[in-house]
């Protein structure tokens, strides 16, 4: 049982505390540190201690790409809503995935929901059910570019 997760969590929470509090005197810093350590200890169950940490650097690189996708599809949906004919073609898409780890699937599901035009409805470790609003969004979904990106984020660590 390695306490690495515990230490990482404490550091992360302490950083958040400094951002929130903004006061750097001894009283607030010490309360923040002990509070962060206590909260990390309460919320870490023994079976979570050995989980691999998230590939944070790659995740940070993924976010701008996701943001650009969001902007593109937002403009698309804006066009559809403002169109007087309302050219929508909603459908449910079955989306099998083999990402493996739960965290990756959750990231995929949340990214899909965050992109306007597609919403994750059901989620399990091997399949997602997605509601797509129009043809363009479902084509975007079929191209699986998002899944590839997420697979890059999570798997390249194992190969090297």
């Amino acid at each position: 049982m390695s306490p690495r997760t515990l230490i990482l969590k404490t550091i992360g929470l302490f950083g958040l505390w400094i951002l929130l509090s903004g006061k750097l005197d001894a009283f607030h810093l010490s309360i923040g540190f002990f509070g962060a350590a206590l909260i990390a200890w309460i919320n870490t169950e023994p079976q979570h201690l050995d989980e691999p940490p998230l590939p944070l650097a790659r995740l940070v690189l993924y976010l701008p790409w996701l943001f650009w996708e969001v902007v593109k599809s937002s403009l698309n949906i804006t066009k559809i809503i403002l169109d007087p004919k309302l050219p929508i073609n909603p459908r449910l898409v079955q989306y099998p995935t083999n990402l493996g780890s739960n965290t990756a699937v959750v990231l995929l599901g949340n990214s899909i929901t965050l992109t306007p035009g597609t919403v994750t409805i059901e989620v399990s470790s091997s399949k997602l059910v997605i509601h797509a609003l129009d043809d363009e969004s479902s084509n975007e979904l079929e191209s699986r570019s998002m899944e590839q990106k997420i697979a890059e984020v999570f798997h390249s660590r194992g190969q090297t």
Binding site: S21, I39, N43, S125
Partner: peptide, 25 residues
């Protein structure tokens, strides 16, 4: 739902830290 599980695991400590901040400040 796995999404809800992950959300709860990530956000419970953050909410507690925020509560501590609200209390101290």
């Amino acid at each position: 739902s796995v999404i809800v599980h992950t959300l709860a695991r990530v956000f419970t400590p953050i909410i507690q830290l925020f509560a501590l901040y609200v209390l101290i400040h």
